Simulated scan of single mutants.
Amino acid sequence: MNLENYFISQFNSSRIGDDGALIGDTVYSKDAFFENVHFKTKWMSHYQIAAKSMMINISDAISMNAKPKYALLSVAMPKSISKQQMRELASGFKDTASTYGIEIIGGDTISNIKLDITITIISTTKRPLLRSGLRQGYMIAYTGELGKSKKDLQRLLGNAKLHKKSKFVDIKLREKFVNNCSRLLSSGMDISDGLFSDLDKLASANKLGFKFNKKISKAIACSGEEYEMLVAFDKRYKKALIRRAAQVRTPLNIFATSARVRYTNRCKAHHF
């Protein structure tokens, strides 16, 4: 057990284990976005930093088939931040929230030695998509293309600049896919820690492993911050799911089947 999972195991709640906590028809989700952990200010504008911090939190709601409604922001800012940079942050938060119909209802601001952001998103859902629900013999798939985020991170670490449409700074979520296909999906989550690492969470939630029908390189499967969807479904729905995914122009990559085998994550943990 890695240190992140060990720490989480100290809290005994049946609501822990999905991208957000489901209480009734409400989903509560929270993620951190910290300078020198998730980003450097020389890599992105303050507008881009705020926008991405909102998007990675909205992703948790989308992945659970929930509609985000409200946001609470906590922003720790260095004393050296300028008023112009503050305005850029505010605009990034507001513009991204507006795109998804989210109202920013409060939060907290403090002085810090660097820029750290945490956001709570409050969402509602009539048909929640959870990580549990996987059965033996179900098909496993991911949306879109994986690997670009890691490549772009490596370029940034090498002091290269990224195009403003780079996946590392300009996240595209799969809300249309989830909305269109939720009735056919048994379980799902977003790919934030990398495909192999997130498969580990899916395996743990359902006490099942996977038989792969195609080889997936670690360069692709260990790429974090992709924010594509990892989903499972009954093989009877394969044709219908492929058709519905195509309706919303979402590539669907079916790569494994759930089975009673042991799953081993071949990627290094991102957090500890």
Score class of each variant (00 low, 15 high):
residue 1 M to S: 14
residue 2 N to M: 02
residue 3 L to W: 09
residue 5 N to E: 13
residue 9 S to F: 09
residue 11 F to Q: 04
residue 11 F to E: 09
residue 12 N to G: 00
residue 14 S to V: 04
residue 14 S to F: 07
residue 17 G to E: 11
residue 18 D to G: 05
residue 21 A to W: 05
residue 27 V to W: 11
residue 28 Y to R: 01
residue 29 S to P: 00
residue 32 A to V: 07
residue 40 K to I: 00
residue 41 T to F: 05
residue 43 W to M: 08
residue 46 H to E: 12
residue 49 I to G: 04
residue 50 A to Q: 04
residue 50 A to I: 04
residue 51 A to K: 15
residue 53 S to C: 05
residue 54 M to S: 05
residue 60 D to N: 13
residue 61 A to M: 10
residue 70 Y to K: 13
residue 71 A to G: 08
residue 72 L to F: 13
residue 74 S to F: 14
residue 74 S to Q: 15
residue 75 V to Q: 05
residue 77 M to H: 05
residue 78 P to K: 14
residue 80 S to N: 08
residue 85 Q to Y: 06
residue 89 L to Y: 12
residue 89 L to Q: 09
residue 90 A to Q: 12
residue 92 G to Y: 04
residue 96 T to K: 11
residue 98 S to V: 03
residue 109 T to N: 07
residue 113 I to H: 11
residue 118 T to A: 15
residue 118 T to L: 03
residue 119 I to N: 01
residue 123 S to G: 04
residue 123 S to P: 03
residue 124 T to K: 11
residue 127 R to A: 08
residue 130 L to M: 14
residue 134 L to H: 02
residue 135 R to L: 10
residue 138 Y to S: 12
residue 142 Y to R: 01
residue 143 T to G: 08
residue 146 L to D: 04
residue 152 D to T: 02
residue 154 Q to K: 08
residue 158 G to C: 02
residue 159 N to Y: 13
residue 159 N to W: 12
residue 159 N to D: 15
residue 160 A to S: 10
residue 160 A to Y: 14
residue 160 A to D: 14
residue 162 L to W: 11
residue 170 D to H: 10
residue 170 D to C: 07
residue 175 E to V: 01
residue 177 F to G: 03
residue 177 F to T: 12
residue 179 N to M: 11
residue 181 C to E: 03
residue 186 S to W: 01
residue 188 G to T: 01
residue 188 G to I: 01
residue 193 D to A: 07
residue 193 D to I: 03
residue 195 L to R: 01
residue 196 F to K: 00
residue 197 S to R: 15
residue 200 D to H: 11
residue 201 K to G: 00
residue 201 K to F: 13
residue 203 A to E: 05
residue 205 A to Q: 07
residue 209 G to A: 06
residue 214 K to N: 05
residue 217 S to D: 09
residue 219 A to L: 09
residue 224 G to K: 14
residue 228 E to D: 11
residue 230 L to D: 01
residue 231 V to W: 02
residue 233 F to W: 08
residue 235 K to E: 10
residue 242 I to D: 06
residue 245 A to V: 01
residue 248 V to T: 14
residue 250 T to K: 13
residue 251 P to D: 12
residue 257 T to K: 11
residue 257 T to R: 13
residue 266 R to Y: 08
residue 267 C to F: 14
residue 269 A to G: 03
